[in-house]
Design a protein around this nucleic acid. Structure first.
Lengths: 183, 183
DNA sequence: GACAGTTGTATACTATAATAAACAATTTTC
DNA sequence: GAAAATTGTTTATTATAGTATACAACTGTC
């Protein structure tokens, strides 16, 4: 993703200007060539880990301070930008509203379940947690022997590190919001 | 630093094996070519941020989980491996015991001050904190109007975001341990 | 205002990250 | 046990990260 390169460029320049250093200063402190630093700041280059390691070390900053997106920036997601994945012959539709981001650690979905649909999900790796909220309709959540019946407005949090399933027991379409948190 | 590449390779393989995935599986999940993944795992490649972004995203893991060195690994530092920087005509000697590491956020020095030596230090950027411990002798620390006299065994923590200085007021050599914490 | 030193940019070149494909070695499946 | 699929490795090629150098634009200093 070239968004990452742009974030790095933005943050690096921000820190450099804050400390009122020149590209030459940073080049000397980090052992990264001035030309390369200029390209990185402009987001025109896709640095290697070795290079960001040299930059972070020389500047005495953390990796995450380089990777973070500009604080004041908005990011808008809507139906248009969301990816759709259909399962169970189109009767279970998953809209990826906010895709997974390594800096964030979680992802956000909207799910539509047609009447009667049963959706089984594999066990995720350890520590994965799902948070379901019912927007419309009802849902039956089953995980590791536990069973919960949720109606509109209710939210359930459970460990997804075991096989689990969602069932729409009603005659209307059910809409869910789902947050998956990885560790 | 190629140490970084090796850490990434180690962690990636560890996670991949933990989840019992093949290189093909990971390649499909991350859109990074199998050959490249193999090289990265062996530490023979120095991936770009775009590539580790694709890997972290596809595997639903954080950057830091990729960058961390193997937990069970020892790392030994001694006088031999330490870098020496001399100042004030060799009367103020700085031994870099643990160099700065972006994942760690701090660095560790041993300092030797000959009798009577005065050492001034520029203001560091905001949030930088110094921790001095007297190993032998005595030291006078001055920072932002404050003055502290430390003797053997005493430790002082202070904000280094202003000009400060160390003075050895005695007739013997003074040895200090210094931790500099960046934010 | 001319000179010298600093700034960021542009250019040419080298090293290597990344891909796609073919390969060999192992495991699965019937 | 033979065929097929799945594994990680190797090879050839392309794209580009990174360096070194020269350049142009701006800064100050006397």
């Amino acid at each position: 993703m070239e968004q990452m390169s742009r974030n790095i460029g933005y943050q690096l320049k921000k820190i450099r200007v804050q400390r009122s250093l020149s590209l030459d200063d940073v080049a000397k402190a980090t052992n990264v060539s001035k030309a390369q630093l200029a390209q990185i700041e402009k987001g025109e280059s896709n640095p290697t880990v070795s290079t960001i390691w040299k930059i972070a070390s020389g500047m005495r900053i953390s990796f995450s301070s380089l990777l973070q997106p500009p604080r004041e920036q908005f990011q808008k997601f809507d139906e248009k930008t969301s990816t759709v994945v259909s399962e169970e012959n189109g009767k279970y539709r998953v809209y990826s509203i906010i895709p997974y981001d390594p800096e964030r650690g979680w992802e956000f979905y909207k799910i539509e379940m047609d009447p009667g649909v049963i959706h089984r999900s594999e066990a995720h790796s350890d520590g994965v947690e799902e948070t379901v909220t019912v927007i419309n309709g009802q849902v039956l959540v089953e995980a590791g022997g536990m069973k919960e019946h949720l109606i509109k407005g209710e939210t359930l949090v459970f460990s997804a590190s075991q096989e689990h399933q969602y069932v729409n027991p009603t005659n209307e379409m059910t809409t869910l919001h789902l947050i998956i948190q990885y560790r």
